[in-house]
Simulated scan of single mutants.
Amino acid sequence: MNTVALQINRRAVEASAEPRTSLADFVRDKLDLTGTHLGCEHGVCGACTVLLDGVPARSCITYAAACEGADVTTIEGLDDDEVTTELRAAFTREHALQCGYCTPGMLVSARDLVLRLPDADEQRIRVGLSGNLCRCTGYVGIVRAVQSVIEARRARNIAPLADGGRTILGPAGSGRATSSSSEPLTIRQALVPASEGTAPVRIPDFTPATVLDQRFTLPHAPAQVFAKFDDIGGIASCLPGVSLTAPPRPERVKGSISVRLGPIAASFEGAARVERDPATLSGRIVGIGTDQRSHSATQGEIRYRLLPLEGGAATAVELSIGYTLTGILAQVGRPGLVRDLAKRLVAEFAANLDRHMSGASSGRAAPAEFSFWSIASDVLRARLARMFSRVIGKGGAE
């Protein structure tokens, strides 16, 4: 058992919980806040949505222990909230609920849209609510309710809040990631260009929500590969979809990465820092970025280690890729899909790096683009192969 201390509905709370206890179970079982509903328990349906550090998040797939020091608001904590009060009235007026099971999570997500969107654009509202499923209403009343509240507030000259009032960089529930000076690090500070007259801000450390391990080999000696990794511009040219926007320095590399997966496109602009350890032939790249189109944010790190092969004539490159994604894109960033995409990106990077070290141009300037159906078919083939392997294995055992 661990003791978890956090702020829930503006009240300091401290209670014991198993490491595996979800935040949803924590607020329901420990605090009797049963307005947070459990539906799919896979982070898909949105019934369990709460606010973590002011950001809508799935409480069924968030560990309570990971929210140490965070500010949590459940639907009960929004009883006196002005926006939520208006939304409740609008939901009633527009017949936007029937059984009501999805409604608490729907209200939390709708409140975020009312705060952020500049106008009552139906398409943006539908996209913003795409992570909240309702099996009763058909969504028409829900969308009309949200539209009416946005229209009424903008008519009263209540302007939208940039990023919904979010000012702290870091994953929801992280306890607010801080810089080395222990002062909160804002998104604006972290991404502001040095040309605007401000000193470069240190890229913060963080704990990734997801970690993927990859490995590839190169027909070059480890010392040569490690030296090439010090050529930031050259490495960037080998990475699919990556481009630098300023002369690179190890303490701060500014650039962007663009990826397209079928109809889903994203272009994250941000900054990173590079760390190297010649003694162990290892290093780390830590970065942050935002996609303006979807208002999604990400933090990522790549740890690498070089191991000699074939008596030192070749090199095995071991990668550990960690990331945290928040915003709309987090709703489609399923681990299996991301893992397969990362595998393809790493394979293309390895091929480009080999060509670059052999004296040929990597020739990679366009965004990384992959076919959704190609990835889906690869995943299906892999699953069928595992299934047949298990069947054959059982047959052989008999």
Score class of each variant (00 low, 15 high):
residue 254 K to I: 03
residue 222 P to T: 06
residue 267 S to I: 02
residue 229 F to A: 05
residue 307 L to W: 03
residue 241 G to A: 06
residue 255 G to A: 01
residue 320 S to N: 14
residue 261 L to K: 01
residue 282 S to I: 08
residue 230 D to P: 01
residue 221 A to R: 10
residue 316 A to E: 15
residue 238 C to A: 09
residue 280 T to R: 13
residue 315 T to G: 12
residue 254 K to G: 02
residue 238 C to W: 01
residue 319 L to N: 10
residue 290 T to C: 11
residue 290 T to N: 13
residue 223 A to M: 03
residue 302 I to Y: 10
residue 237 S to M: 10
residue 267 S to C: 13
residue 220 H to I: 05
residue 286 V to H: 07
residue 275 E to C: 02
residue 227 A to H: 04
residue 230 D to L: 11
residue 292 Q to Y: 11
residue 280 T to Q: 12
residue 284 R to T: 15
residue 282 S to H: 12
residue 222 P to K: 05
residue 291 D to E: 14
residue 306 L to G: 08
residue 283 G to K: 11
residue 225 V to R: 05
residue 308 P to D: 11
residue 248 P to W: 00
residue 297 A to P: 01
residue 225 V to D: 03
residue 310 E to I: 00
residue 222 P to D: 09
residue 237 S to T: 07
residue 266 A to Y: 00
residue 244 L to S: 03
residue 274 V to L: 07
residue 291 D to V: 12
residue 255 G to S: 10
residue 296 S to K: 06
residue 315 T to C: 14
residue 274 V to W: 08
residue 225 V to Y: 02
residue 303 R to V: 05
residue 235 I to L: 09
residue 264 I to H: 04
residue 291 D to G: 07
residue 239 L to F: 09
residue 269 E to V: 14
residue 300 G to M: 09
residue 305 R to Q: 15
residue 273 R to W: 01
residue 300 G to W: 04
residue 298 T to R: 02
residue 295 H to G: 11
residue 302 I to H: 09
residue 289 G to A: 13
residue 232 I to H: 02
residue 270 G to T: 07
residue 318 E to T: 09
residue 257 I to P: 00
residue 232 I to D: 00
residue 272 A to E: 08
residue 242 V to G: 01
residue 281 L to V: 11
residue 289 G to V: 08
residue 246 A to R: 08
residue 227 A to V: 01
residue 239 L to M: 12
residue 221 A to I: 00
residue 255 G to R: 00
residue 297 A to L: 08
residue 262 G to D: 04
residue 257 I to V: 14
residue 235 I to Q: 03
residue 292 Q to W: 09
residue 295 H to D: 13
residue 282 S to R: 10
residue 263 P to E: 07
residue 218 L to F: 04
residue 236 A to R: 02
residue 224 Q to A: 15
residue 272 A to G: 03
residue 272 A to F: 06
residue 276 R to K: 15
residue 287 G to W: 04
residue 298 T to M: 15
residue 266 A to I: 04
residue 228 K to L: 03
residue 312 G to Y: 14
residue 307 L to Q: 12
residue 294 S to I: 05
residue 307 L to A: 13
residue 310 E to S: 14
residue 236 A to W: 02
residue 295 H to S: 15
residue 311 G to C: 14
residue 234 G to Y: 03
residue 236 A to L: 04
residue 218 L to C: 01
residue 284 R to P: 06
residue 223 A to D: 12
residue 221 A to N: 02
residue 221 A to K: 06
residue 243 S to Y: 02
residue 262 G to I: 02
residue 303 R to A: 12
residue 291 D to M: 08
residue 291 D to I: 11
residue 235 I to E: 07
residue 254 K to S: 09
residue 320 S to D: 15
residue 320 S to F: 10
residue 251 E to F: 07
residue 231 D to I: 07
residue 232 I to A: 02
residue 319 L to F: 12
residue 305 R to M: 14
residue 226 F to T: 03
residue 297 A to E: 10
residue 222 P to M: 08
residue 252 R to S: 11
residue 311 G to F: 14
residue 288 I to S: 05
residue 275 E to L: 15
